Deep mutational scan, measured.
Amino acid sequence: EYSEEELKTHISKGTLGKFTVPMLKEACRAYGLKSGLKKQELLEALTKHFQD
């Protein structure tokens, strides 16, 4: 599980793409985000969540 700060850091540095799909799905579930099946959809959901 990833902390909010850790995820925000990866988003701001542009390194969230280094996460694997299972890692991204886990992060989306942890924050109650609707997650797609594609890596890009997962990245967009997390990025949008933490930028709002």
Rank of each mutant, 00 (worst) to 15 (best):
K48L: 13
V21Y: 15
K18F: 14
T20C: 04
S3T: 10
C28W: 01
L24R: 01
S12Q: 15
P22I: 10
A45I: 04
S12M: 14
E44I: 06
Y2E: 05
E1R: 05
K8Y: 09
P22A: 14
L7V: 04
Q40H: 14
Q40R: 11
A27M: 14
K48F: 06
S35E: 06
E44M: 10
L37K: 14
G32T: 05
L37Y: 11
Y2W: 10
L16T: 06
K18C: 13
G32D: 07
T15E: 06
Q51F: 07
Y2A: 04
L46P: 04
E6N: 15
L7M: 09
G36S: 12
S12E: 15
E26S: 12
T47A: 11
P22G: 10
A45Q: 13
E5A: 12
K34N: 13
R29H: 14
T9R: 13
Q51T: 07
K48N: 12
K34A: 11
K13E: 14
A30Q: 14
H10D: 03
K13Y: 05
L46T: 00
H10G: 04
E41P: 01
T47G: 07
K38W: 01
Q40V: 12
E41T: 03
S35K: 02
K48R: 12
F19A: 03
F50C: 05
S3W: 08
I11Q: 00
E41C: 07
L43D: 00
Y2V: 08
T47C: 06
L24S: 00
V21P: 02
A30D: 06
L24I: 01
H49E: 03
L33W: 00
E26N: 04
L16D: 01
D52P: 04
L43S: 04
T15P: 04
K25T: 13
A30Y: 15
G32P: 00
K48I: 06
T47Q: 03
F19R: 01
K8G: 07
A30H: 03
G14K: 11
K48C: 11
H49V: 03
K18P: 02
K38Q: 12
D52G: 15
A30I: 15
I11N: 06
F19Y: 15
R29N: 15
K38N: 09
E6G: 10
Q40I: 12
L46A: 01
K38G: 12
S35F: 13
E44N: 12
S3D: 12
K38C: 12
A30F: 07
V21S: 03
L33D: 03
D52N: 15
L46R: 01
F19K: 02
Q51K: 08
F50K: 01
K8S: 09
C28R: 01
K39S: 02
Q51S: 14
S35H: 08
I11R: 01
K39Y: 02
K25W: 08
K13Q: 14
L33I: 11
F50Q: 05
K13R: 12
G32A: 05
P22K: 15
L24W: 00
S12K: 15
K38Y: 06
Y2G: 04
S3E: 04
G14N: 10
M23Y: 09
K25M: 09
L33G: 00
E4G: 05
A30R: 15
P22S: 10
K18I: 07
K13D: 06
K13M: 11
G32Y: 04
Q40T: 13
A45H: 03
S3G: 05
Y2F: 14
F50I: 05
E1T: 02
F19H: 04
L24M: 03
T9M: 12
F50D: 02
